[in-house]
Design a protein around this nucleic acid. Structure first.
Lengths: 233, 233
DNA sequence: AGAAATATTATGTACGTACATATTATCTTT
DNA sequence: AAAGATAATATGTACGTACATAATATTTCT
């Protein structure tokens, strides 16, 4: 509002957000163009541009060349979800992390894994199941398939010492990934591993990652009862 | 790598990411400073700055003034989760949206809501339960508390026509919010509303929002069996 | 030697200019 | 009037310069 001296892109960001919040600019409204705002607020267009770009990426504004900038008609909130290595997630809660490899086998994948990763049924893959513990209690059950063609060095990794989860993050960065969150009833075996009862509701995270259209790994992460994933917005 | 003519911040972004992916720069490594990179890649420092800033916000780099820029030692993936209005989520799937108000009452909140929103037990609040349907089938059961002090105009809203979910997004923008994702077993009443069996595993989203430390609303969104929340990464 | 003051440095940001690009608006042609 | 070509325009981005800021490194003081 006051066009005093130095303006930072943060202050422009906050001022625009204030006008949206107070409904001075309503959803769907066309807001002044960058040059006008810069003049109003007493700063350079680059500064306004940075602020508006930020607000657009946060979902508050819709911007299009020539058409101008509008307040988002249907504000879509973009939650930022941190997906850290499981060890760090557990240690971040102040709990002691432990890990146990349950099973590891080199074989060809079942149909659903082929479909997920886009590989053939004859692919050379590593199938690993493991359990992550927090303060000695089962925390997460990991069932993972890794393409050996995409990451041959995983055969040298000592998966008794370091989890596939962590090894992959450090040695096989990916370019693209998918995550699905859902809820499932524990099967007999899942319940046994996680020391709970069959039928208990469990939080499931399914992750698939690619490096330039080459499927790397597909994992099914099943969390112990009571797990909650948090996100600020 | 080739320091030819025009360079865009995107190309710098991709080149740096390539060096991280190929482990030319390993986790923890200090990378060249902005001026050096700009020289190497044949562009202005501002361009390098934009690219590195982006990579830092994506979690690939850690940057500190004077200390320089390092490849993130523990890559934390930041998934971006879109939280649209339920109506749009359903329509986006190509299904027909419908909505029914189950219950609406003006009363004082129970202790857990007070704790969530940071309000007193004598607060004037609106308690609303409703059902969102996709193609005529129950999709999501919403149990919501709204602070009347924070948003008095909600008393004028016709909550038979527009859901509280959608009304609040359009009329009560918030500055801060929390989301928790988890899995729960359906209770008797929840199962009845969502037309499933008690004990079925359900995906739960708990949202609380504030406007400058004033609690606005706290909602419990319970999704029908089979629901999966997707996120690209 | 240890503490405090000072210099150094890499990132952070602001500004003005210039040009690119996507889209809309306008004008021409048929 | 419909279709196609052309002009106009708001955002997108690149660059160079200048200065701010935070953190580290160095020097000075006790």
């Amino acid at each position: 509002m006051s066009s005093l001296e130095q303006q930072s892109w943060q202050s422009v960001h906050d001022e625009v957000l204030r006008r949206i919040h107070t409904r001075e600019w309503k959803p769907g409204d066309l807001i002044p163009k960058e040059v006008e705002l810069a003049e109003q607020l007493g700063c350079a267009r680059a500064t306004v541009n940075r602020a508006l770009r930020e607000l657009a990426s946060e979902g508050f504004l819709d911007r299009r060349r020539k058409a101008g900038t509008r307040v988002a008609a249907h504000p879509v909130r973009r939650a930022k979800l941190d997906i850290p290595v499981i060890r760090l997630e557990i240690e971040g809660r102040g709990q002691k992390y432990a890990y146990g490899l349950l099973f590891s086998e080199r074989r060809t994948p079942p149909p659903e894994i082929c479909a997920n990763l886009g590989v053939t049924a004859e692919s050379d893959m590593l199938h690993i199941t493991s359990l992550h513990l927090a303060d000695g209690k089962p925390f997460m059950f990991e069932d993972r398939w890794v393409s050996i063609a995409a990451t041959p060095t995983i055969l040298d990794a000592d998966l008794d010492k370091i989890s596939a989860n962590e090894w992959l993050v450090l040695h096989a960065p990916y370019t693209r990934g998918d995550i699905y969150f859902s809820a499932v009833n524990a099967s007999e075996t899942e319940a046994k591993v996680l020391r709970t009862d069959p039928g208990t509701s469990l939080f499931l995270m399914e992750r698939t990652t690619w490096e330039n259209n080459t499927g790397i790994t597909s994992a099914r992460l099943l969390f112990a009862p009571g797990y909650r994933k948090h996100s600020a917005i």
